[in-house]
Amino acid sequence: MSLLSVEDLRLSFGGLLAIDGLSFTVGEAEIVSVIGPNGAGKTSAFNCVTGFYRPTAGRILLSGREITGMRPSGIAGLGVSRTFQNLRLFGEMSVLDNVRAGAHLWLRQNFVDALLHTPRYRRTERECTEQAHHWLDFVGLRGDRFGEARALPYGEQRRVEIARALARRPALLLLDEPAAGLNHGEKAEMLALIRRIRELGIATVLIEHDMGLVMEVSERVVVLNFGREIADGRPEDVRRDPAVIEAYLGRDDEDDEDDTDDTDDTDDTDDTDGKGGADGKGGADDGDGGGDGDA
């Protein structure tokens, strides 16, 4: 049985179909990349799997258990961790506190412990801090751990976000463009990091635009276009797949920039709802109000 299986997933925002019958699976400790042009529905799919969007139709199973429509925290509780396309650290908290967030669920401590500083409180806090240090070591953070997370350089913040996700001790890790904005050296380190994560027995799904990284690290590649899967296979096979070549090269590769322009990115930057995004009529009835320059 596969760790994650997505079956005939559909998601629409008003009239707009973001995902149109997507199915794929991820096995234990497998590294799968999801690629596709901007607006192909990659991040939307991530948001469905992690519970941030409620799919219009289809099922999502984690180790055979249906998680469709569960609360994000519930899904996280079952062992799914994620990072966000545009870094979502707790900026005004210390780096260590950020990673401690990952430990939230397995930390056994109640408010009496907290009020009285019981031995259990001291023990759990110590363990939690040790774990946080451990994962920061694991991702190779060089910067200041005790200061605010937002003070770190961009590349370091990416590492902290991954450390935070790992501290959750997930079975499945979803990385949304982990290499975006990194320089060449940092990308190489990210590649090594992803491999080391796999050695922990954690399955990783990544959305990535950097084809070099994708081809290098993935065991399997799923290609999306217009919310649909157009290929699924080993990197070297996918690379030669005519449908994939058409999707990418058929229309020049100006898609490579990760600017915010079309549906997929709107998911993260705009006011599309987290929960019932599916039944929205917002898009529909403001459509004319937007007045796309008909002045």
Partner: peptide, 8 residues
């Protein structure tokens, strides 16, 4: 009302 939504 239009949908009042919190961004994700």
């Amino acid at each position: 009302g239009e949908r009042v939504t919190e961004r994700v």
